[in-house]
Simulated assay, not measured.
Amino acid sequence: MSPLERAFREERAQVVATLARRLGDLQLAEDAVSEAFAAAAVAWPSAGVPDRPGAWLTTTAWRKALDVLRRDRSAPGTVEAVVPAAPEPGLHEEDAVLQLVLTCCHPALAIEARVALTLRHVAGLSVAEIAAGFLVPEDTMAKRLVRARTKIRQTAISFELPDPENLAERLSSVQAVLYLVFTEGHLASGEGPAVRTDLCDEAIWLARQLHRLLPGDTETTGLLALMLLQHSRAAARHDDAGQLVAFAEQDRALWDTAAIAEARALLATTGRAPVGPYQVQAAIAALHAAAAGADDVNWPRIADLYGLLDRLAPSPVVTVNRAVAVGRADGPRAALALLAPVLADGRLAGYAPLHAAHADLLERAGDERGAVAAWRHAAELARNPAEQAALRRRASAG
């Protein structure tokens, strides 16, 4: 990795955050930082990499932003009225990145806008990369970003940290956005590979930054651990042909043991705090990772944890996962009884994992005809060709 690439990865979000807070204009900050990196690409090879790359980039970006404001004579007031005092050369304001993340993930913004803003301005992905990740045209994504930034400006969404009473609510929005990015990569929608490692990596990087800023927040710790545990199986989740490999059939030698160890160490730091949904999900993933083989999974304990999760954050999706665990721990009949209200409710009628779970339970209960129909229905609803193919193979096997 070149010094410029390292600076982009390690310093860019901090510089954008510092300028955005000072300027109150996310797009102006982003443009100025982009120009600063372009200037660095020219200057650093000849003049040498500065001792403090972030300081150099902050100062250069600030000057670029001032140049824009001076040229824009239509802006109300003088430059001094629009722009607060300049940051000291290279000063990284405390919690600036956290402020930026909280702004990008503000609950007043649509969830799609929160995801796009976070990936663009915090992770530094291009508009084209974000559009490709979420299967929308680049122009559509560009307009989505413009609308979101306009709303931030017009509704005066603050770049300041919220007070402690409101921080928890805002933080839960950030966690939801990061996990949404991760889950889209873990099993991608539409055409293309079933596993989007790039999106998973970005989500984990963002979760690391959030954890670095808030090391005492146990749900942030749980979220990072959960992502690491789930992503540790990435290399084993598909074969050379791109077909998905079921959990029970995965080659555990391909699992990332370093990521699993890191996740366990993270979870060990959360023991004294009240438990939250991400911590429970991470604990479930840790039990899967601890099993030497598919037959060694501690299903009774996992079923108990899903019961706890259903009390902490009840949802039909949690009930589906709980039913799968109960089916392994107590048999398919008990699980089918648990699943019946979700099937009757209809809210998850288009959710492929519900029908895949139903199919598996029917198959294990001896209802082969019902299982085949459920496998086929799940395949029709699957989000990705590789997922569809895997479900059709299950239907054919019946």
Rank of each mutant, 00 (worst) to 15 (best):
S2H: 12
P3N: 07
L4C: 07
E5R: 14
A7L: 05
A13P: 00
A13S: 14
Q14A: 14
V16P: 02
L28T: 10
L28Q: 09
S34P: 00
A36V: 01
A39F: 05
A43K: 13
A43P: 03
A47L: 12
V49D: 03
W62I: 00
K64A: 14
K64C: 08
R70I: 11
R71N: 14
D72I: 01
A75H: 09
E80N: 06
A86N: 06
P89I: 04
H92Y: 11
C104H: 11
P107D: 10
P107L: 13
A108W: 12
L109P: 12
A110Y: 15
R114K: 15
V115W: 05
T118M: 10
L119Y: 05
R120V: 07
V122L: 08
V122Y: 05
I130A: 09
I130E: 02
A131S: 11
M141N: 13
V146M: 07
V146N: 07
R149G: 14
R149P: 02
I152H: 09
I157M: 12
F159S: 10
S172M: 11
A188N: 12
G190W: 12
L199N: 09
R208E: 15
L214A: 10
P215K: 11
T218Q: 15
T220R: 03
A225N: 08
Q230W: 07
R233V: 02
R233D: 03
R233I: 02
L244C: 05
L244N: 04
Q250V: 01
Q250H: 13
A263V: 08
R272V: 11
A282P: 15
A283F: 02
I284R: 01
G293W: 12
V297L: 04
D304P: 00
L305T: 12
D310T: 06
R311S: 14
L312P: 09
S315V: 02
P316K: 04
V317D: 05
V324S: 08
A325G: 06
G327F: 02
A329W: 10
G331K: 03
A335N: 00
A335D: 02
P353F: 04
P353N: 07
L362N: 00
H377K: 11
A378C: 04
L381N: 02
A382E: 03
A390L: 09
R394V: 00
